[in-house]
Write a protein that binds this DNA or RNA. Structure first.
Lengths: 242, 242
DNA sequence: CTCATATCTTTACGATGTAAAGATAAACCG
DNA sequence: CGGTTTATCTTTACATCGTAAAGATATGAG
């Protein structure tokens, strides 16, 4: 790469000089600190800046475009800077996924609470699930389809667990029974697995475009949301929980 | 990596020489032709050999290990040989996915036909679905998780379509109605989406290890198959088709 | 038998992840 | 306040990988 074909893939406006033109010119606008100091050697909060850059890159260029070097470029730092904060690509992706799970949980809980009718809570949460995935397909991919996730990281472990706990709670509520932390009956487990499988499967297929052949054969203008609704309602009266 | 750390990742016994030690030693055992000719310059059926090598690499090293060069090494040819037969990595992966879909369809159809009771056909197919994914997780990943699929390739397009057609047929059979090729009622679409979402979602979550927390809380020794069975039976009497 | 063509190998290049060593500023300590 | 330690960031380096292009070799058509 001499300087030419660099732009052909998800790389944009970030200026890049390689010659020993020492710093200062290398660091684009993104590098500002609170009190207006201009592009200091030490960033101040690079970790956070990198995560935000990563999310931008992800939603702009997709999972394949989410590379350590692309994130570093987006944040305006050297390509090896992320290593210090996340160890490796798996680290960065895992932290990003944790953020995704937290947003995800918040959206589901909000949907659950905004719905007053108890029987509709599950349906509202399910719609929030799909809506989140449609609004943030990159994040959803990182959370559920990336091979590079390290669940031994506490942040990811906790955020993903919270997601599962919410689901369990929602299913318990719709069955009007308390679900234990320790043990499950086969019936309870089946209900949880069914709720999760349904919504997760639908979302995955939808994002992969595998439901378009179905949608095309429906009365014109039938949206994915409509199909989801019909699918959940016909399940037998027990729509999945948050 | 000079020659030492080369083996740390999914690379094995394939001898590799880099110096201009001209050919002949570069081609390992895999390169034999029918009549015992030894490692001819022209392989004879390299395309098929590469696909088989790819499947071995995939199931041994996972999706991340499935690279053009790794496949070439496994087949004992130069790293650029696959290009001639598949164009690029997307091409090879797509052809491999097509093979996966064909195996997949065969397994589902076999399950469907081996079950005599009409109401059980769907359940049998669903179990075959999950069983295939568990037996060939790499293939399942290529088929449903890979970002590098080119559905404009006829082989892949047809194989994937056949899969969908089988599903539709199965759902139609369990509802005892003919399902048109052109248009669907919302009810029919919902039934198809539900069957597919349930089984596909369950499989995805299972392969990702996201159901272990559920399985652990069940009576000791409860297998994923048992959970699947319970999940499908509680759906309301309409288990998914093939 | 000659030669066009398909098949395979070499060579080359830009990209990526990651390790290691160097530069710089912030923090800490006397 | 001055000097040193330490965390943060940059450079440099290297093994891959995908892919393009040019060279080698066998196959088959005439």
């Amino acid at each position: 790469m001499t300087r030419t074909s660099r732009e052909n893939k998800a790389v944009r406006n970030v200026p890049r000089t390689r010659k020993p033109a020492r710093a200062a010119a290398e660091r684009p606008a993104a590098r500002r600190r609170k009190s207006g100091g201009d592009t200091p050697y030490h960033h101040g909060d690079l970790r956070e800046a990198l995560l935000q850059a990563a999310e931008r890159v992800l939603e702009r260029d997709g999972l394949a475009g989410l590379t350590l070097r692309a994130v570093a470029r987006e944040a305006g730092v050297s390509h090896a800077a992320p290593t210090h904060h996340f160890g490796d690509l798996t680290g960065l992706v895992s932290e990003l996924a944790a953020i995704g799970f937290r947003m995800f949980n918040a959206a589901m809980n909000a949907a659950d609470e905004s719905e007053t009718h108890p029987m509709m809570k599950g349906l509202a949460s399910a719609k929030a699930y799909v809506a989140y995935a449609q609004a943030h397909p990159g994040m959803y991919g990182v959370m559920f389809r990336s091979a590079r996730l390290d669940y031994s990281r506490p942040s990811l472990h906790e955020a993903a667990d919270a997601s599962f706990a919410g689901l369990t709670r929602g299913v318990g509520a719709s069955r009007q029974e308390q679900i234990s932390e320790q043990s499950l009956s086969l019936d309870q487990a089946a209900a949880i697995a069914r709720a999760w499988s349904l919504v997760h499967g639908f979302t995955t297929l939808l994002l992969d475009g595998r439901l378009t052949s179905i949608l095309e054969r429906l009365p014109a203008g039938t949206t994915a949301d409509k199909l989801l609704d019909a699918m959940l309602r016909s399940t037998g009266g027990r729509p999945p929980g948050p």
